[in-house]
Design a protein around this nucleic acid. Structure first.
Lengths: 247, 247
DNA sequence: AGGAATTTGTGCGTATGTATC
DNA sequence: AGATACATACGCACAAATTCC
């Protein structure tokens, strides 16, 4: 059984045509918020597409584009003839923030502790990206189900904010980008290899500076294709691994 | 300038409604063949979507779904107001076969040497997949622009073929699946971590058995969602890295 | 077991918006 | 500024898979 479709979207921000974002993106974002916030629970069946579309005041095709997107991101399972089912696993939630690490035993709820934030001249060894001379460097400890598993160093191009304080980043970093900076990261490119843990790593991720660990380089692009963010992640391969789904 | 759209699709297999595959998939496959075979060269601009759709006898929306797919796979760059441009880099061609390794200096033409093929009982340490007790084990050496960079061990569920001979696999493995076995791998899931090089590795990939290397586990699914293939890849992180694009 | 109802998937055509040339 | 070309959105018809009675 699924929730009565009449009451389904009460209190939800409806997509509007006047917004700068296309309706299908607004709809996808809205649904992701519903799932992430727990209002839609795992295994739940959504109302039929035609009903949902009517309720939202949009065309079925537009809704379907949003649902396709959610399936790609792993939030939804779509079964022809059956229905659309919420898949609210933390990995999917993480993928929303483009987080692609999971525990070796599968899944794990991703969280982050801010280690430091600093506005700096972009160092020489950083790949070229963005327009500013400066960058915001954010260092985070990544945990999966409270187990420290990786460290991250994120560089956001300086032009997007004057300063960034740790308190701003309480939630997801990409959510902060979107909410406070009006910056929507729509595509990232990851390169995964092997590296050595840097010396600023805290000692509780299960390996020592200098140890051989997994290494992710990431380029994050805004909707217009510009690279606005570059990050490096070092992860303990005895605790987590990187996951990619390819269509 | 782009090729005259009237002559553009001469000699090409047109999508038909009677085929088992949806028109948009047929169209995407056809275009990928055109690109892979070199009939469409890098940088080339495709005719306008409306012209192409008319020539192919399909609706614009259907064609656009195929083009979206090609862009996802990296074969095409779509620029609003400008056109659709062929991007025929070897990495994209490799991605068609779901190959995701590239040289540290970028790109590289992916090839493979078959080391062995064997039908075996699936060993205990293999994850559960498929219906057969047996599996076909294919071991390959992977090269990027002729530089040995990785080794692969692929397990195809036994039910799909009686035997597989190295000569069958001269081309892409997935192409062989499709052409000879009627098996289309439509989705894969990769997990990337760190591992140790197995003892059957040839010595020219630049590291020794027992060395710490990059490690990829892959589950390959057919169109109906069934897992039909499982593989492991060990790659020399000093020569190559794994690439993922996320929307 | 089987047929009807439900629900998602595919395909078509059209109108309008927006970026590029 | 006008023309061209891709992006979004809508609505409809039918196919295919699933579910229900």
């Amino acid at each position: 059984m699924y929730i009565n479709s009449i009451s389904f979207f009460i209190g939800v921000t409806m997509p509007t045509k006047t917004s700068s974002l296309p309706i299908y993106m607004q709809t996808a974002e809205m649904l992701i918020r519903e799932v992430s916030s727990g209002r839609l629970i795992d295994g739940e069946k959504l109302p039929p597409e035609r009903d949902m579309a009517t309720d939202l005041g949009i065309a079925v095709g537009t809704l379907r584009k949003a649902l396709d997107d959610l399936e790609d991101k792993g939030f939804l399972q779509r079964i022809q003839g059956s229905g659309n089912y919420v898949r609210h696993n933390p990995v999917a939630a993480g993928i929303y923030a483009f987080f692609r690490l999971e525990r070796l035993d599968g899944g794990g709820l991703p969280t982050a502790n801010i280690l430091s934030t600093k506005r700096l001249k972009k160092p020489r060894d950083l790949p070229k990206f963005g327009q500013s001379e400066d960058g915001h460097r954010v260092r985070r400890l990544r945990l999966l189900s409270d187990l420290p598993s990786a460290i991250e160093e994120i560089w956001l191009d300086g032009k997007w904010a004057q300063t960034i304080r740790p308190a701003d980043l309480s939630e997801s970093l990409y959510y902060f980008y979107q909410r406070s900076l009006g910056l929507l990261i729509s595509r990232v490119e990851d390169r995964i290899g092997v590296g050595t843990l840097p010396d600023w790593s805290p000692d509780d991720i299960g390996c020592e500076p200098g140890d051989t660990v997994g290494f992710i380089e990431r380029w994050g692009r805004a909707a217009d294709g510009e690279v606005v963010e570059y990050s490096r992640t070092w992860f303990n391969p005895d605790r987590v691994r990187y996951v990619a789904r390819i269509k």
